[in-house]
Amino acid sequence: MQLADDALMAATPQDASIRFFRAASRMGATYLQTRLYRRPMARLTPEAHWAAGGVIIRMSPERWPGSSAFNYICFECNPLVSAIRENRTRYRFSDFAPHDAPAYRAYWEALGEADIADAHCATSYGSKGVIASLHLGFGDRNIGADMERAVQMAGLILTERLMDFSGSLKDDIPHLSDRERDCLAFLADGRQDREIADLLGITETTVRFHVDNARRKLGARNRTQAIARVANLRWL
């Protein structure tokens, strides 16, 4: 989560994105795109997805935006629309466009022009269809499982911070019980349900009960988004 610490202090989406990329580039990141927008009411297609507009911030080679390769992956071949349809919160480009699939050869060649061998993504979903997303590209296809988890978790904390700027999370800040906060804090520390149960002197079923209650109160899609949401609220 340290990757997102500086971004949490930012006053604008632009500044938050710049701070995050500054930290991520020290870990080898070559590309960043963040976006804050409303999900289109029409059927979700690559064209409708981009027509939704919103605030888009991009850190990339100067030649990349507007190039034929960029336009290809945005408008002609954009498999990432499936991630939004499925309400995914963490994923990689290659989850939806396998590197070894012939159908995506041109897709990866186009991304290669921006030195993107794969990208790790985070998406937060707020009220009234508001979506905040992050794409963080790396020149190395395999950055390692531990680093991947850290990058995606930090990315989700950043997208929760971007949600703050939309106002979609400020209408009703929930009250979490001490037990609910404790369980989320231990999850954020990488503990499993059994470990948390032993530490708190409760059963695994009770741990899951507290976590699920907290998730519902926070309006999170899953445990990971719940952790990111409380991290953004400075509750961890």
Rank of each mutant, 00 (worst) to 15 (best):
A97W: 01
A7H: 02
D178K: 14
I116S: 01
L236H: 06
L200E: 09
Q33V: 12
H175F: 14
L44H: 11
G53M: 01
R58F: 00
R191A: 12
G54F: 04
I157R: 14
S68H: 05
R35L: 10
W235G: 01
E86G: 03
L176F: 07
R215L: 03
I227C: 14
A48T: 15
P98D: 07
R26E: 15
D115P: 03
R88K: 14
I173A: 15
I57E: 13
R35W: 01
D140K: 11
D198E: 14
Y107R: 04
Q2Y: 10
E148T: 14
A119H: 02
S166Y: 02
E62R: 12
G219D: 07
G66H: 00
I227Q: 09
A24L: 06
N78C: 10
R161K: 15
H120T: 08
R38H: 14
E113W: 04
D146G: 00
P40K: 10
G139D: 01
A122E: 04
R19E: 10
R90S: 05
L36C: 08
W64I: 11
T12Q: 04
L3D: 02
M59G: 03
A101F: 09
L199V: 09
V81K: 00
G144D: 02
I18A: 02
L162Q: 13
N222Q: 07
T45A: 04
G66R: 00
F186L: 11
N142Y: 11
F75S: 02
T30I: 06
S60I: 04
S94Q: 08
Q33T: 13
T45D: 02
L3I: 00
W108L: 04
L32Q: 07
R181S: 14
P13H: 01
W50K: 12
L32E: 06
A188C: 11
A101T: 08
D182G: 09
G54V: 08
H210K: 00
F70G: 02
V81M: 02
D193M: 05
D189K: 13
